[in-house]
Structures are given as structure tokens and as C-alpha cells.
């Protein structure tokens, strides 16, 4: 287990490229020819229109674009929440698009973590219970899960607030609980949808730093949807979307071999 640094750097830190830059590292998620149409095929909206994208291990990736460009749909398809209309989503050789709801649910629980705009914490549960719930759903004993969860909450600056309910926390604190919940299960990929969208700018920046750092320190890939270029700039790579297609890819920091992710 890597120990995250307790102090945070002053500004939003760019997520470094994975350690084996340039080496043919197998991606944790790979999509080919993804399309997603809402409604009936003739009259429906095409939210995704041929997406090829690789998510490398431990990389941080921002998906950017105006609202309605399909970025949240892409996140949901990558995370196995939605099934694509055509195309495949490979996770360790398994096509998520071909799995039933039950197996995708288990995969989300064991391999993925989620941080959403409004936190989506269960209001009736305490902060600690919110963090241990996904682990308990996965079959972990309450005691073990609680010990890990306490460590995570303390590390994210929530010592002494374990027994508060989400309604008794500030927006930034609640979002830290959501981050602790996403990471406590040691996921391979953390999916974040506008994680700072409901926060003021200063709080949002701090929460973003915590999110990016925590993912880097625990070796999880981060896939973040945002419409804000400043938020996207904290990630090592950004793909820009428009009308369901990837129109541009930016790479920050050391190059990581040929970046896949162009429009077809």
C-alpha cells in the first residue's frame, strides 16, 4: 500500500504519466467503435458516434466538451452503467457490453469507484457507514471495512467527523467522503462526473487536488468528466468531445507512446 503525502501541493498538480511511459502497457479499459443511441434507432438521439479510447493504468484522463456532447454517456458506458448500442468496452479482456446487469454491477463494485457532482451519499448513513457500504456489499466484514474507512477519512481531513451524516457536512467535506468511498475499495479506475460542479471555486480546487492525488497515490486510473478547462488541466490527458465524437486529444507531461483516442 502506498502512503499518500499528507500535505498538498499549492496548485492543481498535473497527474504524472504512468511509470512505464512508452512501453506497450495494456490499458485497463479499451473501447472500439462505441455508439449509443437513445430512443428508437430511427428517430433517437445519437449520444456516442464511434468512440475508440484507451484508458491506461494509473493515468488520469479528462473528458471535456459542451453539454450534450455525450461525455457523461461515455463515462457511463465505460463504467458499465449503460450498455453501448454497438461496439465493445474491454476490461481485462472481458467485454462489458456483453455482460448482464448483475455481473456489471459486481464489476463496478470490485474494480471501479465513483465520485459524482452531488456526492450521492446516502443521507441516512453516517460518513463512515457511507464509506464502508460498498465494501460490505462486496462481502467484506464490517469491522475490517471500518478500519480501512477510518484511515481514508482521516487521511482526507475528516478526522472527528466519521459519525456525522451528510446533511451535517459542508459540500467540500461531503465530496471528500465520496472520494474516500470511491477509493476505499482499492479500485482500478475512479470515475468522476463533474466532481466539483456543486462546489465554490476555492473548495472545488482543494477537492480536485485531493481526488487527483488520492488516485495517483493508490495507483488508480482517474476518468473525469468536466466542462471546465481548468479542471481538465489537472489530468495528464484530455479528450475533447463534440456531437458524440472525440475531436481532439491533449497530452500533458511525458508522452506515453502513441495516444489512442481519435475520431474514426
Amino acid at each position: 500500500m502506498t502512503t499518500p503525502t499528507s500535505t498538498l501541493p499549492p496548485g492543481p498538480a498535473a497527474h504524472p504519466a504512468p511509470p512505464l511511459a512508452g512501453a506497450p502497457l495494456s490499458p485497463v479499459l479499451r473501447t472500439r467503435g462505441l455508439t449509443k443511441t437513445y430512443g428508437s434507432s430511427g428517430t433517437g438521439t445519437r449520444a456516442l458516434d464511434g468512440i475508440d479510447l484507451d484508458v491506461a493504468r494509473a493515468e488520469s484522463l479528462a473528458i471535456m466538451g459542451p453539454s450534450g456532447c455525450g461525455k457523461t454517456t461515455l463515462l457511463h458506458v465505460l463504467a458499465g452503467i449503460l450498455r453501448p448500442s454497438t461496439g465493445e468496452v474491454l476490461h481485462e479482456g472481458t467485454d462489458l457490453a456483453a455482460l448482464g446487469d448483475r455481473r456489471r454491477t459486481r464489476l463496478r463494485r470490485s474494480a471501479f469507484g465513483f465520485v459524482f457532482q452531488d456526492g450521492r451519499l446516502l443521507p441516512e448513513l453516517t460518513a463512515l457507514e457511507n464509506v464502508i457500504l460498498p465494501r460490505m456489499l462486496g462481502g467484506a466484514a464490517r469491522r475490517t471495512a471500518a478500519a480501512d474507512a477510518r484511515t481514508w477519512l482521516d487521511r482526507l481531513g475528516l478526522a472527528g467527523m466519521h459519525d456525522r451524516r451528510p446533511g451535517q457536512l459542508s459540500g467540500g467535506q461531503a465530496q471528500r467522503v465520496a472520494i474516500a468511498r470511491a477509493l476505499a475499495g482499492r479500485p482500478q479506475v475512479v470515475f468522476a462526473d463533474e466532481p466539483t460542479g456543486a462546489l465554490d471555486q476555492a473548495t472545488g480546487r482543494v477537492v480536485l487536488e485531493v481526488l487527483v492525488e488520492s488516485c495517483r497515490d493508490s495507483g488508480a486510473s482517474l476518468v473525469m468528466v468536466t466542462h471546465d478547462p481548468a479542471v481538465a488541466a489537472t489530468c495528464a490527458r484530455t479528450v475533447a468531445m463534440q456531437d458524440g465524437r472525440i475531436v481532439q486529444v491533449y497530452q500533458r507531461g511525458p508522452a506515453q507512446g502513441p495516444a489512442t483516442g481519435g475520431a474514426r
Binding site: 452503467i81 454491477t105 459486481r106 463496478r108 450521492r120 457500504l133 456489499l137 462486496g138 468511498r181
Partner: peptide, 15 residues
């Protein structure tokens, strides 16, 4: 909404 959030985070419908 709470059911949806739990399901996304990995709670099976049976749970």
C-alpha cells in the same frame, strides 16, 4: 434516486 446511486456504486438489485 438513492436506489439508483446505490446500484451505480455496485449494489445488486437483489441487495
Amino acid at each position: 434516486p438513492a436506489l439508483r446511486a446505490q446500484h451505480v456504486a455496485g449494489a445488486e438489485v437483489a441487495q
